[in-house]
């Protein structure tokens, strides 16, 4: 079997998908969302998965993040074969390994910003005061220190997405997966969020997967994978534009405080 290309010779692959197929049954029709995708993502890479609607890019992200199971094929993420994990095992995997960011933010409307960020800690069994400390630090690092007790409906779109990013970082996962993270934001706010993700990759060493159909979003990635009809049509590395490396981004207040206790 051909080992999927990592697109990056040196670093070990943290995500490997081999011959991935996903078939949805809609009524009596079978839809091949993924049709034999091979992909390997080295640790610390910022990768953009691009393609038109229905190309299977979100499906690929959900498979690699353990939110869905492939019809066929193997997935190995952070040393774990997802195929072999039961639903409890997958829950453990997602909790420890992946932080998800969604286009629609998916914040719980009845919880405050602080409680939303701390929610993963509830399922991880982290004590309340530790949970709150960590959530406050994350929100403060993302410039949301004065919005802790606001509910999602009292926050702007950009602020909501920052809460969602803080929540994705709560358990300090090595991988961040974002599905159209800027889709519901204006371009300026969208750029702020993308800079934040870039910074997490460059400075925190997170592996970042972003699904998007927006090429300006893909501009923050060092590798772009194009998908069409469930097949990878292009997979290339690119040089980052000036100012998008993440080195120049200033995050208030202290950068190292973004990291929760490991």
């Amino acid at each position: 079997m051909i080992e999927p290309s990592t697109g990056n010779g040196s670093a070990p692959a943290i995500i490997v998908g081999r011959d991935l197929h996903k078939i949805f049954t809609l009524g009596d029709q079978q839809v091949h969302a993924l049709n034999g995708v091979n992909i390997a993502v080295p640790q610390g890479q910022f990768i953009a998965i691009m393609g038109p609607s229905g190309s299977g890019k979100s499906t690929l992200l959900y498979l690699l993040g353990g939110l869905d199971r492939p019809t066929m094929g193997d997935i190995l993420v952070a040393g774990r074969y997802l195929n072999t994990l039961g639903s409890e095992g997958l829950a453990d995997f997602r909790r420890a390994t992946v932080g998800f960011i969604f286009q629609a933010f998916h914040l719980v409307p009845t919880l405050t910003a602080l409680e939303n960020v701390a929610l993963p800690g509830v399922f991880a069994g982290i004590p309340r005061d530790l949970r709150e400390q960590r959530a406050i630090r994350l929100l403060a690092a993302l410039g949301m220190a004065d919005r802790l007790d606001h509910r999602p409906s009292q926050l702007s779109g950009g602020q909501q997405q920052r809460v969602a990013v803080a929540r994705a970082l709560f358990n300090d996962p090595p991988i961040i997966m974002a599905d159209e993270p800027t889709g519901a934001l204006d371009s300026k706010t969208g750029q702020t969020v993308m800079k934040l993700l870039r910074w997490l990759c460059t400075r925190q060493g997170k592996t970042v997967l972003v699904v998007t159909h927006d090429s300006s979003v893909a501009g923050y990635a060092e590798r772009v994978v194009n998908l069409m009809d469930g097949v990878i049509t292009q997979d290339y590395r690119r040089r980052l534009k000036q100012g998008r490396s993440g080195n120049g981004i200033h995050l208030p207040p202290a950068e190292k405080e973004v990291m929760p206790d490991a």
Binding site: S87, F100, F170
Partner: peptide
């Protein structure tokens, strides 16, 4: 959706 979200951030079936 909220159930999906809670599962995505690590909630188990239980």
């Amino acid at each position: 959706k909220e159930i999906g979200l809670m599962k995505a951030i690590g909630a188990s079936d239980r």
